[in-house]
């Protein structure tokens, strides 16, 4: 029923999909290795000059640091709100739960630029000027529901009688949370934080309307791309992506190290 050809066709399909998704990313890499004002591929000279120029530029550091601080606070607030939200979403059966679940996922199913514009208008209405701080709020509206869902999935596989067992063995409320609930949720909280960081770092449609004069990396790239081309754009794009990868990896390593220490102490 399943010939060798169907197997090869399936593999080919997957390769084609991956190519479709990665060709633009590879294109950015290729474009970054030129020093001409206009894109003329294949390059006459392959060079890393654009990277040198990008690293030397103050703007590069500025846009990265804005992106970093937005993502940093988004992670912290999203993890706190998301963990509490997940407890309400999945752990307890309470009267308004079904409504809460449905309302909470609404921001995910909402056009982000429209949300950004609505927030911008509201900020103006209440007299707040948009800045990187208001961008944090905008990001959270979209990211908190996602983090809540990620942590909730952890909760659905969690047996609440563990908590009863702990209480039966003499643990108080706080001890139950620290010894039983949080350790069980930990993988969910961890991946929730990771998602929050990556989604915030790469977000364009919310930042573009809510960050005001502070320009995070995606917004800078967008405005530069939409107006004029320069080899600085692809090199900054590559640098920004690499930095987010490095931050995520080091975050994961630090967390793993802390967990290792805790386990050794325990």
């Amino acid at each position: 029923m399943q010939g060798r050809h169907t197997g090869a066709l399936r593999a080919l399909w997957i390769v084609a999909i991956l190519a479709f998704l990665y060709i633009p990313i590879i294109s950015v890499l290729l474009a970054s290795m030129a020093n001409t004002r206009y894109m003329r591929f294949p390059h006459k000279v392959w060079t890393l000059d654009a990277y040198r120029e990008a690293i030397a530029s103050f703007t590069t550091w500025q846009i990265h640091s804005i992106s970093f601080w937005i993502a940093f606070f988004v992670v912290i607030f999203a993890v706190i709100l998301g963990t509490l939200g997940a407890v309400a979403f999945a752990r307890f059966d309470w009267r308004g739960r079904s409504l809460f679940q449905r309302l909470l996922v609404l921001p995910i199913f909402f056009p982000q630029p429209v949300l950004g514009l609505a927030l911008l208008l509201s900020l103006n209405a209440v007299g707040l000027s948009p800045s990187w701080k208001t961008a944090i709020l905008a990001h959270l509206v979209w990211i908190v529901p996602i983090v809540t869902l990620i942590i909730s999935i952890r909760f659905f596989g969690y047996d609440p009688t563990q908590e009863e067992a702990a209480r039966d063995l003499g643990a108080n409320n706080w001890q139950v949370i620290r010894e039983v609930t949080l350790p069980a949720l930990w993988p969910g909280i961890f991946s929730g934080g990771l998602f929050a960081f990556l989604l915030s770092w790469s977000n364009l449609p919310l930042s573009i309307y809510t960050s005001g004069p502070d320009t995070p990396l995606p917004v800078w790239l967008f405005t530069r791309t939409a107006t004029n081309y320069s080899p600085l754009v692809p090199s900054v794009a590559v640098i920004g992506t690499l930095i987010s990868a490095c931050l995520v990896i080091s975050f994961a390593l630090i967390v793993l190290a802390i967990r290792g220490l805790q386990r050794r102490r325990a």
Binding site: I17, V28, R40, S202, L204, P218, S244
Partner: peptide, 27 residues
């Protein structure tokens, strides 16, 4: 591998698509 690009900003990816599709000197 399919999920990874979600975490790369869409401005980066769309810029990549534009240099790929660009007339004459595009990739």
């Amino acid at each position: 591998l399919i999920a990874l690009p979600i975490f790369i900003s869409e401005s980066v990816r769309l810029f990549g698509m534009s240099v790929f599709l660009m007339p004459r000197g595009g990739i």
